[in-house]
Design a protein around this nucleic acid. Structure first.
Lengths: 122, 122
DNA sequence: ACTAATGTAGCAACTACTTGATACAAACGG
DNA sequence: CCGTTTGTATCAAGTAGTTGCTACATTAGT
């Protein structure tokens, strides 16, 4: 799983928050299904080149958010989530169309993301 | 313009980075057109409840990125950007369709953004 | 029952960020 | 030319984050 996690030490977002965000994304996209075991705090810290306290903080916040459960010796496991819809092919295709149109129209990635944020239903 | 900027002091992303990101989004979305004058460092700082050094840092980084030009007494102005395509209605509609499908299918906002990130063309 | 594996906590030292303030300098407007 | 407006720099003090490490406690596996 850790091959999907990347920490940019030069980013403005602190490392613990990058880890937390990326793991919660993997969970919500179904790429870390219920019951998946996360790497140990020490293993992920070594992989990412950060301190174990940094990973521990990310895991602690994921647990506080109800996404995972940590237990000594047992490790950290993805919780089952209530009635999460699987992401439909229709939605994936709609997202792909956004990127295709953006590419055709010379719209850069940050602008696309800004547009998605702006047009959020919120 | 400052009514469009919001700083969350509890967020993991430092305030200067939130300001920089939001202003660069406004520019790339065309909501801050070429020649627009940004609020002064002091005015925006007061509006947002942050120190003027914090806003100054955001402005400095926007200038380093080539998005704006700052001059004493003259203020900070949005640069013209080379051949930026205007965002088409087609692209906006495609983004809106993504949000509509997500709503219909009970997909939450963070998952949509994670999906957009995952399906990026990069 | 014991050992090992795992998460959690705490520490000192360090870096980064922010504040609130002051001061300086560029430069615009009258 | 002068006063005002604006960005920039610096400072001390404070908070936050990170490191590298050690230690502890829970608990799983043998």
């Amino acid at each position: 799983m850790s091959q999907h996690i990347f920490v940019d030490l030069n980013a403005a977002l602190p490392p613990y928050a990058q880890i937390r965000t990326q793991i919660s994304s993997l969970i919500s996209l179904g790429e870390l299904p219920t019951g998946s075991k996360l790497p140990t705090v020490r293993a992920l810290a070594t992989d990412l080149g950060v301190a174990s306290g940094t990973v521990a903080r990310a895991y602690k916040e994921l647990e506080a958010a109800g996404l995972v459960t940590s237990r000594r010796r047992a490790g950290t496991v993805v919780n089952s989530v209530p009635a999460t819809e699987e992401i439909s092919n229709e939605l994936i295709e709609a997202v792909d169309k956004v990127w295709r149109l953006a590419r055709e129209q010379g719209i850069d990635e940050l602008t696309v993301k800004a547009l998605v944020q702006r047009r959020t239903r919120g």
